[in-house]
Write a protein that binds this DNA or RNA. Structure first.
Lengths: 331, 331
DNA sequence: CTGTCGTATGATATCTATATAATAAATGAG
DNA sequence: CTCATTTATTATATAGATATCATACGACAG
């Protein structure tokens, strides 16, 4: 049997209420009593039972984190941002992978609510009405990280994907490219649609036509980037530049080009997205859109703490700054 | 106020005990009663409170996972293996980063035990006596994943790092290399010492001398691999091959070599370690030692479930197979 | 010296389940 | 049809903390 608050109380000759006060740093305890209790705690090796505490106080100091895939370099970085801030505010995180499967996502939300988490950070792809209903009926706050709710109903932290894509493409147009391919992510998410819109808007503004043959729908993997390039280069209107929706796919594009004898950036310019650590691990190093993943994680967790503490929040849909960094895969 | 088991009992005109039985799938419930209860649960939207359940049953179906850095591609893959098996066995995981800081590690263990986790998967570097003491006095089982306890006291899942390094070096010697550099990880962990021993044993067996100038101590980052190569190539006895303790550093070595005008593998052969996804994302693709990270995670979690269920375990220190995969960074 | 107020402490209800023992109902044997 | 057994159900203790309200104790004002 474990040592409980009651054992400490007996050992120190006080009531459990007093022990509780000492443990929780309540100031209304005589220093002498405090010492007595502290000694008892020490000598018995007492460690408060967080489960009992959670039941009595209705706070678990635990937050749920739902993530598509922790083994993805992108989400892992986000998760680290979340966890660091959680630790800073004395929360622990329960982390689960959803694989962006809607049923899993909804199920995980319920499991976590059952575990009485004090809040949830959600990362996913497609936010449906069912998701929103679930979030709104949840008894605790929910924050979306790097995840777009088209209705802007749920608090979230993102960058402006449309604008970011627009800027990247505009830069490629400035460089003189007249035919620009796009290796996209799966088009069932609002985030990817925003990138698509930015791509199209930039082309239009630059007086270029949108050619559906120059758009390849990848799945974020290196291999799909490689495949994407192969596909694009077969088109009549061969692209002289490719905008890619993630760095990992962009590496695939770079190597796909090199494997076919193209020189990057001389024959083909490539711009990635995210600025994961990968971007500097290729030759040539990758020009990419900086998406501050760690910060998005950190800011969403911080935002969540505000909701959990019932602090006032002036803007519940945070947009963090992005930036295009030009390395050696562009001219 | 939330709906509790008591509300359901009243609604269904049964006792809370019966509701509890239905919820937990106890067969001793009349089908008619079961239906009545299920309807009440449905109509009230009852969701069992896992915290109360945890307090009463002393089981939380939650396990703690202590990991050096979730944003590392290596550990992220391990974590995914852990989480998948945890999910399979209906456990959730509380995940925390330790940065391999001993105080943080010990503190996290205590926090998690306070939260009444049913078990712990621990990943770290240096396992000290303090760690072992902590693990042994813990009221729940602990399993080490990809982490070596020199005393073999604590259950663990690893590969044989010494043998793996030995084989990699032996292969390089077979290829005719007489001067082989080693870019190591930090040498304060048993794992890295094992790699070092394998390196030395292979050299000795091959009749080559161990030259401390050909050993560079990196820190697992790409940059340190790059630096490592620069350093090694300045030595009198220039290496014609480099064995690197991680893939990320190996990429650094490959690019370091290329940046200095060396051809890989013609001038310099490079062998990495781990076989992370990075290995196929470089040109040339990286020859490396396959360490099955996902499997190590999965097997350690599976091992932990056995301990938690008090099943018998025949071998508590599991060694998984490794293999050298030769790609294009070696001849 | 009494009454009041703030600080320190205690007693007890409460949180929401499970576990256990007691009881009631149903089933089967003789 | 009765009694023994098995199955179904209830009542209640319990897990280990916090929250709330009550009480005791000094200090100090009047």
């Amino acid at each position: 049997m474990n040592v409980t608050i009651y054992d400490v109380a007996r050992e120190a000759n006080v009531s459990m209420a007093t022990v509780s006060r000492v443990v929780n740093g309540n100031p209304n305890v005589k220093p002498a009593t405090r010492t007595k209790v502290l000694n008892a705690i020490e000598s018995l090796g007492y460690r408060p039972n967080a489960v009992a505490r959670g039941l009595a106080s209705k706070k678990t100091t635990t937050v749920g984190v739902i993530i598509p895939d922790i083994s993805s370099i992108f989400f892992a970085e986000l998760a680290r941002g979340i966890e660091d801030i959680a630790t800073m505010y004395k929360y622990n995180i329960i982390l689960s992978n959803s694989d962006q499967n809607k049923n899993k996502e909804l199920h995980l939300i319920n499991t976590m609510l059952g575990k009485q988490v004090d809040g949830i950070v959600f990362m996913g792809g497609d936010i449906t009405e069912d998701h929103i209903k679930e979030f709104q009926s949840a008894p605790v706050p929910v924050v979306l990280a790097a995840t777009i709710d088209p209705t802007n109903t749920v608090p979230s932290v993102n960058i402006n994907y449309e604008q970011a894509a627009f800027e990247a493409i505009s830069r490629l147009i400035e460089n003189g490219n007249r035919s620009i391919g796009f290796v996209s992510g799966p088009l069932d998410t609002a985030m990817n649609n925003q990138k698509m819109e930015g791509y199209k808007r930039a082309l239009q503004k630059g007086g270029l036509e949108v050619d559906e043959d120059l758009i390849f729908r990848g799945d974020y993997t290196y291999q799909s980037g490689h495949d994407g390039f192969t596909k694009l280069i077969e088109q009549d209107k061969q692209p002289s530049a490719v905008f890619v929706a993630s760095d990992e796919m962009a590496l695939g594009v770079v190597h796909g080009a090199q494997d076919k004898g193209f020189k990057v950036p001389d024959d083909i310019e490539v711009v990635g997205f995210d600025n994961t650590r990968l971007a500097t691990m290729v030759r040539p190093t990758l020009s990419t859109v900086i998406q501050p993943m760690y910060d998005i994680g950190a800011v969403s967790m911080r935002l969540l703490t505000k909701f959990m503490n019932e602090e006032t929040v002036d803007e519940q849909n945070v947009i963090l700054p992005h930036r295009l960094i030009e390395r050696n895969s562009t001219k």
